[in-house]
Write a protein that binds this DNA or RNA. Structure first.
Length: 586
RNA sequence: GCGCCCGUAGCUCAGCUGGAUAGAGUACCGCCCUCCGAAGGCGGGGGUCACAGGUUCGAAUCCUGUCGGGCGCGCCA
């Protein structure tokens, strides 16, 4: 509908250009908006006010010329000039009636479009280190990323969903060492667990499966392991030096083969856990991309070489630095450490280089907001490599703070006192979790009210929306009990019987849905869909309370059933985009 | 100290990329079930859009500054 009106305006503009009223070479993006107030019609454009300077005429005069040049349309019943020079469009009843028919005809595909034109976009999200289970912070990134991806797919992009697996690096070595220490403990060795190690119960489980497989074959005495290892923090030492030395000793004692096995056992079991968590949350991926593969394929080396060749690297204090300050970063960054090891950043340069090499036209990263300082250096690297950094959008997701009984739920990764995503799903259910996570703008800090998410009452927006959907299904069941019929074709013929203000309002809302989806997708704002669905549900409930649907008058009944079935369809489509179920009864 | 994000009803948040009289939910008060699910609906009170300037036909929205909150400033990942 909106596109149709834009076309009309565009034709009017062309007409005025050829008449010489407006400069022919003028390029304008026409703005057309839904009116806030129905008294101003359905759509309004500020075109005349925007162009009045170029046309050297008063806004209202120009508006009149534009309106005069507007081609006729059976979708438009009236065009008015109002206020300082707004052009207000009133849609014809027929436009709304055909809208209802369209929804029922298109079904699940209503709201989808092809404005993305099949352009490829990669969405990388969550990508939490496989060193432990996902927690509620990751959950928001998962729900948000998955919904953004689904929205983009709905408007015609070819979407590739990807999880970057940090299967290399020091944190993973710490995990492997933690697993080995738990294994030794199970063998009967008495040892003090490092303060920097991973202390979660899941590490015990992995240590146990290592023990099941090898028995005591990999056992070394604690004394042997701690030989030459500097003191841990509680003993007045440095926890970083302590753990690094333990990693080193574990490697030596286990030998490369068994160390690798321990490492991979930890990686695989945690990754499996993460996969299951996300699958259970309705979050699916096309690819799990291994960081290690970047080193093995030589991509990291190649990225560094390219930066080297183009003169963006220099050596200082034994390390190799990338001059990211040339492209707006605050300081230069190390890519190869003094000890010869590449940094995490080096992998990330290679990873993003790889993404663009794979030919994606757009690349989206969803990160926790605490990584925001990282954006300039990644973009700097892409620019230095000669790529277009504008292809990359980094979407930052703020943390969610849980509330239970009006109190903040304490959380810190350090103390191991965090709520896992699995616990959250178990407590409030998938639907509420998915919905609450995307209910807020991503850059907004979020208060996640667990009690509200759990409550099965109208206070809870997710129940409110699902209830609207179930209510329509219930009406249809009731209809059969009463021995009545729904004849969709007859309903279509009689849509002009829908003359109540509630019906009018409902039809307006239904016609907005494709615009909502389009804007939500392009702006990466799933919350717009959540708010829309709440409003739509409200209109259905209001209508329900004001009028009887199952009336004896066949024509009226069929028309009304068409309308509420169309509403049910849009509710279902919207909920599906958010990863939330649309039940027929509750 | 520097950088990024955020300040809108008592509380939680929208506000369609600068438009017409700033909106929902919640909480509080009052109404509506011999009627398709009251898990619902209707009505009411509640605001200096943090503050001060600026840009223009027009600002909650854009720019500058101040105040307040969050996060980030490693040869960690």
């Amino acid at each position: 509908m909106k596109h149709h009106l834009l076309q009309l305006l565009s034709q009017a503009l062309d007409a005025l250009k050829s008449e010489g009223v407006l400069p022919a070479d003028m390029a304008t993006e026409i703005q057309l908006e839904r009116t806030r107030d129905r008294k101003h019609g359905d759509f309004a454009s500020n075109l005349a006010m925007v162009l009045c300077k170029q046309a050297r005429s008063k806004p209202r005069d120009l508006a009149e010329k534009l309106v005069a040049a507007l081609p006729g349309s059976d979708q438009v019943s009236k065009v008015e000039i109002a206020g300082p020079g707004f052009i207000n469009f009133y849609l014809s009843p027929g436009a709304y009636h055909s809208g209802v028919a369209q929804i029922l005809a298109q079904g699940e595909s209503y709201g989808r479009s092809d404005i993305g034109q099949g352009k490829t976009v990669q969405v990388e999200f969550v990508s939490a280190n496989p060193t432990g289970p996902l927690h509620v912070g990751h959950g928001r990134g998962a729900a948000y990323g998955a919904t953004v991806a689904d929205l983009l797919a709905a408007v015609g992009y070819k979407v590739h969903r990807e999880y970057y697996v940090n299967d290399a690096g020091r944190q993973m070595d710490i995990l492997a060492t933690s697993v080995y220490l738990r294994y030794l403990d199970l063998c009967g060795e008495e040892l003090v667990f490092p303060s920097n190690g991973y202390k979660g119960d899941y590490v015990w489980d992995i240590g146990a499966s290592l023990h099941r497989k090898h028995g005591d074959a990999l056992r070394h005495s604690a004394a042997e392991l701690f030989d030459g290892v500097p003191a841990d923090e509680p003993d007045g030492g440095d926890k970083e030096l302590h753990i690094d030395a333990l990693i080193q000793r574990s490697r030596e004692l286990l030998g490369e083969e068994h160390y690798r096995e321990t490492f991979d056992l930890g990686l695989d079991s945690i990754l499996e856990n993460i996969r299951n968590d996300l699958e259970g949350f309705g979050v699916h991926y096309d690819e799990w991309f291994s960081e290690r593969s970047l080193t093995e394929s030589g991509a990291v080396e190649r990225a560094i070489q390219r930066l080297q060749d183009s003169g963006h690297l220099y050596r200082e204090k034994g390390a190799l630095w990338f001059r990211s300050t040339d492209y707006g970063d605050e300081k230069d960054r190390v890519v190869v450490r003094e000890n010869g090891q590449t940094t995490y950043f080096a992998s990330d340069i290679a990873y993003h280089m790889n993404k663009l090499e794979r030919g994606y036209e757009r690349v989206i990263d969803v990160w926790g907001a605490d990584h925001h300082g990282y954006v300039p250096r990644v973009k700097a690297a892409l620019t230095a490599l000669g790529d277009n950094a504008d292809k990359l959008d980094v979407l930052l997701v703020q943390f969610a703070i849980l509330y239970r009984g009006g109190e903040k739920v304490p959380m810190s990764t350090r103390s191991g006192e965090f709520v896992t995503l699995r616990e959250l799903r178990h407590e409030v259910g998938n639907d509420a979790a998915r919905f609450f996570y995307v209910m807020r703008k991503c850059e907004q800090h979020m208060d996640f009210d667990l009690d509200l998410a759990k409550s099965q009452s109208s206070d809870n927006p997710i129940y409110y929306i699902q209830y609207a959907h179930a209510r329509v299904a219930s009406v249809m069941r009731q209809m059969q009990d009463k021995g009545m019929q729904w004849d969709r074709a007859a309903g279509e013929q009689n849509l002009d019987r829908l003359s109540e203000s509630h019906e009018d309002a409902l039809m307006v809302s239904l016609s907005r849905y494709p615009e909502i989806v389009e804007a939500a997708a392009l702006n990466h704002e799933p919350h717009a869909v959540a708010h829309y669905l709440r409003d739509l549900a409200n209109e259905l409930h209001t209508y329900y309370n004001a009028h009887q649907f199952l009336v004896d008058d066949d024509a009226l009944r069929n028309a009304r059933l068409n309308l509420i079935q169309a509403t049910r369809q849009v509710l279902a489509n919207g909920l599906q985009l958010l990863g939330v179920s649309a039940p027929d009864s509750m």
